[in-house]
Design a protein around this nucleic acid. Structure first.
Lengths: 347, 347
DNA sequence: AATATTTAAGATAACGTTTACTCAATGTTC
DNA sequence: GAACATTGAGTAAACGTTATCTTAAATATT
């Protein structure tokens, strides 16, 4: 089983290695009896073609890389499944790596994947290796998900939800229910998702006349991790004049914030309202159902799979952007503020 | 960047390809100035060694496969991280595949991984390809996690929690609180986890004089999926004489069961008590905190990483088994039954 | 029947590495 | 200073495939 090569098969079947190869790949006519003999030898010796050798010769590994920021976020495992679902039919398979949002890890994995000669890459970047990635994109089929690369040298596709719109919708929802003092727990402002979601927040606020500038009191810049969600909630709730609601910019930080609230006896939504960007698993089983805007990991993954395959087949396609509209799903995490309160709040 | 080979570096540095190889691998003395020239050429041409070619020559890919039943179960992503944490330091990396508990998918992935010439495999098997796996184990370093392979030809290691004990503890806990009519939602009885956990259930029950045989009324044999947890809860609660408690044999089915309860207005623990095998993420944020026995994915993953490395280095080591003792963590999902009720129950 | 054409299958070079052999050019020994 | 050991770096074979080139046999053409 181990170490059986095409030569062993050839010898056993009494044919040349070329013939064996032809049988395996089924790409040239081989007479029925010889074919039969070869197939039997393969069966008997438990032969599995060495795809390392194959890849070397063919200059193709039939492997697509998927580099994500956090493999334990269900959002990305769902996306990975969706990608695999598409590429599997075309004979490709996926190798998933997790950067934990560390610049060095991303760089290390990128180099590893280059070395491994993957045929294409789907990337959720840390946003800290833009130059490297842009230059890589000139030689490697590349599809970005959720996070942009800022460089005009970049060549590839980009799939995302409309972050500005999504965050804008979340805030608008709070505003429509009377909230005015609204806290925000940001993700990293170095990556497009973090940046744009915050932009959506600022935009919505400014439309009701509230300017969000550097010294906005209810703002915490986190890093998309559970801990930073917890810290952000703690920080914002420590203000003497507390906000009535908080916007959290991703699913994981939302869990962190809720943990802070729950373990500190802060009731949602009576003491604080909360809305969040991104899907939450088994949300029906939570003690409170956050109002969220969702992004469909499965749809994005499928699209990413399709696009990377297209790019592998035709390296010359021009840059494309696909932006999905996020959908607001109402939970029970927001309290309506009465208008007299409103006035007292915005004094 | 793409297509730069050792030859290009050799030419640029004015040395032979052998020398370049020696510099890259740092395994033979090369004089400082030549080394310097080679390194500069590597830098300038953006050379990345082709690990496909390397693997072919070295007969080692520095890659370990990790085949799991369900990649979207956080239990396995945590374990994957733990494995990676260990093997990364030794220069190995991980390729994770998910079988979705399908026999054919497992077989397909096994063959793929064999073809890809992985150096070792960590496997959470479906339990339906035991012969194939046993025969594979004679040539490939293999570590099983959580699920056993039944074959005396099998050669490798096995890491698990003590399933019998864990389930026994769960049931004992219920019994100690007065429960006697106890439902059970099993996983697949074809795999060791499913089988043994059920065994633990039967054992604990028999100790209080309740025989669990074929026509035990509160039993549902599921398949470790969310849907089967839901179905199981539905089925068991449809009995005219309902049980007072249910044991669910994994984390995912537990979510399914809870979804059934919650969406059907069945209160936990007042209408039904529940205990579960396995970790649940963010359990503090759930509307009810199930009492569980945990298995530590991180510990198991670390151990699996260690053991596979040992096996790769020394293929001859004999079979080993590591069994961890699961720990019961009390939640608020179980109601104490008064003794008069007890009598009425066990009539 | 002799030649031209087609075709099945064998021989071989190549993919990009690593490493056992070589072989100069030094350094060492008496 | 001659014989010998040492060493740094080059040459070439090999890993297991695929695909081009060749060749011999079979078939078609006149």
């Amino acid at each position: 089983m181990a170490g059986v090569t095409i030569r062993d098969i050839a010898k056993r079947a009494g044919v040349s290695i070329a013939t064996v190869s032809r049988v395996i790949n089924d790409n040239y006519y081989v007479s029925p009896d010889i074919k039969e003999r070869v197939l039997r030898a393969i069966e008997e010796l438990h032969y599995y073609p060495n795809s390392v050798a194959r890849s070397l010769k063919n200059d193709a590994t039939n492997t697509i890389g998927f580099l994500v920021s956090d493999i334990s976020n269900n959002y990305f495992t769902t996306m990975a499944k969706a990608v695999e679902d598409v590429i599997h039919n075309e004979g490709y398979n996926l190798i998933v790596c997790s950067t934990e949002d560390k610049k060095e890890r991303e760089l290390e994995y990128l180099k590893l994947l280059i070395s491994k000669k993957i045929d294409g890459l789907i990337l959720n970047t840390t946003g800290e290796n833009d130059d490297f990635i842009a230059s890589l994109s000139e030689h490697m089929p590349l599809v970005l998900v959720n996070r942009k690369v800022y460089s005009d040298k970049f060549k590839g596709d980009f799939i995302d939800s409309d972050n500005i719109q999504g965050a804008y919708n979340l805030v608008s929802y709070l505003l429509s229910l009377g909230h005015r003092k609204i806290g925000v727990i940001n993700g990293m402002l170095t990556v497009s998702t973090g940046k744009e979601r915050f932009k959506g927040f600022v935009k919505a606020m400014s439309e009701v006349g509230i300017e969000v500038n550097e010294d906005y009191p209810y703002r915490y810049d986190g890093d998309f991790t559970l801990e930073s969600g917890y810290q952000g909630a703690a920080k914002i709730m420590s203000a003497s004049d507390k906000p009535s609601a908080i916007v959290v910019m991703n699913n994981v930080m939302t869990m962190g914030a809720l943990k802070y609230f729950r373990s500190n006896g802060i009731d949602v939504p009576n003491d604080i309202s909360i809305v969040a960007y991104g899907n939450i698993d088994n949300i029906e089983l939570m003690y409170v159902q956050p109002t969220i805007v969702t992004l469909n990991a499965w749809v994005i993954g499928n699209k990413a799979g399709e696009m990377i395959l297209e790019r592998i087949k035709n390296k010359a396609v021009s840059n494309r952007e696909v932006i999905y509209v996020p959908q607001l799903i109402e939970g029970n995490s927001v309290k309506k503020i009465e208008s007299n309160q409103m006035y007292s709040v915005s004094h």
